[in-house]
Amino acid sequence: MEMQISTPLDQSVRDLVAGQRVLLSGVVYVARDQAHRRIFEDLDAGRMPFPLEGQVIYYAGPSPTPPGRVIGSMGPTTSGRMDPFTVRLLQMGLKGMIGKGRRSREVLDAMVSFGAVYLGATGGAAALLSRSVVSSEVIAYPELGPEAVLRIEVLRMPLVVIADSKGNDLYDSGPREARAMVAGLGG
Rank of each mutant, 00 (worst) to 15 (best):
R38K: 15
R38C: 05
I39A: 08
I39C: 01
I39S: 03
I39W: 13
F40V: 04
F40S: 07
E41P: 08
E41I: 07
E41C: 13
D42Y: 02
D42R: 03
D42T: 05
D42P: 03
D42L: 05
L43M: 08
L43E: 09
L43V: 13
L43I: 13
D44H: 14
D44G: 12
D44L: 14
D44V: 05
D44Q: 15
A45Y: 11
A45F: 00
A45S: 14
A45L: 11
G46W: 05
G46P: 08
G46T: 08
R47I: 02
R47D: 14
R47T: 07
M48F: 12
M48H: 14
M48S: 14
M48Y: 13
M48C: 11
M48Q: 14
P49N: 06
P49C: 09
P49G: 09
P49Q: 06
P49W: 04
P49S: 01
F50T: 11
P51S: 09
P51E: 04
L52S: 10
L52R: 07
L52W: 03
E53K: 13
E53R: 11
E53I: 07
E53L: 15
E53P: 07
E53Q: 14
E53C: 05
E53F: 07
E53N: 07
G54Q: 09
G54E: 09
G54R: 05
Q55V: 02
Q55S: 11
Q55W: 05
Q55Y: 11
Q55R: 12
V56G: 06
V56R: 02
V56S: 09
V56T: 03
V56L: 09
V56H: 08
I57A: 10
I57N: 09
I57T: 00
Y58K: 01
Y58R: 11
Y58P: 00
Y59H: 13
Y59P: 14
Y59K: 03
A60K: 04
A60I: 00
A60C: 11
A60N: 07
A60V: 13
G61E: 06
G61C: 08
G61P: 08
G61R: 10
G61T: 10
P62C: 03
S63H: 12
S63T: 14
S63A: 15
S63L: 15
P64N: 10
P64Q: 05
P64M: 04
P64G: 01
T65N: 00
T65I: 03
T65A: 01
P67L: 02
P67I: 04
P67Q: 09
P67N: 01
P67D: 12
P67K: 14
P67R: 04
P67G: 03
G68V: 03
G68Y: 08
G68M: 00
R69I: 09
R69Y: 10
R69A: 13
R69G: 00
R69L: 07
R69Q: 09
V70N: 04
V70I: 11
V70L: 04
V70E: 13
V70S: 06
V70M: 03
I71P: 08
I71R: 01
I71G: 03
I71K: 06
G72F: 06
G72H: 10
G72S: 05
G72P: 10
G72W: 06
